[in-house]
Amino acid sequence: MNRRTLLLTLGIGCPAATVLGWGLSEWMLAGRQAEPPTRSSPFGHPIGSPFSLTDHTGRRVTDRDFAGGVRLVFFGFTHCPDVCPTALGYLSAAFEGLEPAEAGKVRALFISVDSARDSPELLAAYVANFHPAVVGLSGSEAEVEQAAKAFGTYYRKVPGDGDAYVMDHTASIYLLDGEGRLRGYLDSHEPVGAAVAKIRLALDGPPSA
């Protein structure tokens, strides 16, 4: 092998191998991410991180701003007059059922999946009808998509007449403990006392093994 062939082989071969290797590893990583989670239950595992959104007062927040406290997380939109107010009314009633010292350690996050319409101003007027512990969160399409991904929440825009549309969305109310682990779900069909009991369990710390 002469010197020219060697240089040519190294000059083309090395970059080509690098590109091929990089591409292959990217492909393998993407494949791994697409695999379904292997664990059988989401309970007790961290959920809802990361996200970066704007709260109803206009302040930029991330999931870390709510760390340490118990969180009740519900996805919805302010054009929803039926199910969303019912859920937020249920959460407000649960807050009323807690002692003030307990309620102070709990936040309800109402995350809007309607990034096109729900501004912080609209959310502020919407959450003002409920318990002060309810925080309205909105963001750009990409930010909301990331937040939904962090919780494994589904949502979809459904066109209606003209420029009207509604949003399909997961109706679960996620209950996260202070460590950000999913402790269960609240269900607005259950008595408010059930929600209060579940929130207290999450306030008490990790479940005994």
Binding site: Y154, V158, D168, H169, T170, A171, S172
Partner: peptide, 8 residues
Amino acid sequence: GGVMRMRP
């Protein structure tokens, strides 16, 4: 399936 839908 846990998804809320609103339709006319």
